[in-house]
């Protein structure tokens, strides 16, 4: 393998790792979200190198576009950029890092010595229409028709759930009910007047 190809792949991997670490460590949630956008875009480039142009474009438009815009919108809506400066305890932190590193070591050892990484040294030459949108659509509407339909139901229930959870009427009704409650109740029960939450 030529040195230039190695350099390009090494640079891509480095950007992926550095942006992920930046997401993990930045104090400001907006910077975290922007680091994650860069991470998703770089992973989309990796998808391109794996012969998956459709998935790469879906990644850019769905993840880096729609989902991260939703994240930024909620961060700014809640003013949550600097929320929770308080850090976790020291023992918790050490234990977390230990468990995560053990998991990574296990995965890497498996990949390098037992898994498929050993015998698959180079990307096989893919046929030109391997992952064309037409091929993906054909498979999606034949073999994967049932999961595709279930996906529609999941998206519908997510839309309904999101609208239900964020509407304001229910809260306002609860507040007026709480305001009316002492008026209706007789005065002899002051113990009942504890707040609702």
């Amino acid at each position: 393998m030529s040195i230039g190809v190695m350099l390009v792949y090494g640079l891509l991997g480095l950007i992926v790792v550095i942006t992920a670490l930046g997401m993990l460590t930045s104090r400001n949630a907006v910077y975290s979200a922007l680091f994650l956008v860069l991470n998703f875009a770089t992973v989309a480039v990796l998808y391109m190198t794996l012969g998956a142009p459709f998935i790469a474009l879906a990644q850019v438009s769905v993840y880096a576009g729609a989902i991260m815009v939703l994240f930024l919108f909620v961060i700014m809506l809640l003013g949550a950029e600097h929320i929770t400066q308080r850090s976790t305890g020291r023992g918790h932190r050490v234990l977390s890092v230990l468990v995560a590193v053990a998991l990574l070591a296990e995965a890497v050892i498996y990949i390098l010595f037992r898994g498929a990484g050993v015998e698959m040294a180079a990307l096989p030459s893919l046929p030109p229409d391997f992952a064309s949108p037409a091929a993906i659509g054909q498979l999606l509407f034949s073999q994967f028709l049932l999961p595709f339909e279930i996906t529609a139901v999941i998206l519908l229930s997510a839309v309904i759930g999101a609208i239900y959870l964020t509407r304001r009427e229910r809260q306002a009704a609860a507040r007026t009910a709480a305001a009316e409650q002492p008026a209706e109740k007789p005065v002899e029960e002051p113990a009942e007047k504890t707040p609702i939450y």
Partner: peptide
């Protein structure tokens, strides 16, 4: 690139 490159990056 060997497959392990992508798998380790993913890990």
């Amino acid at each position: 690139m060997p497959l392990s490159y992508y798998l380790i990056l993913s890990a």
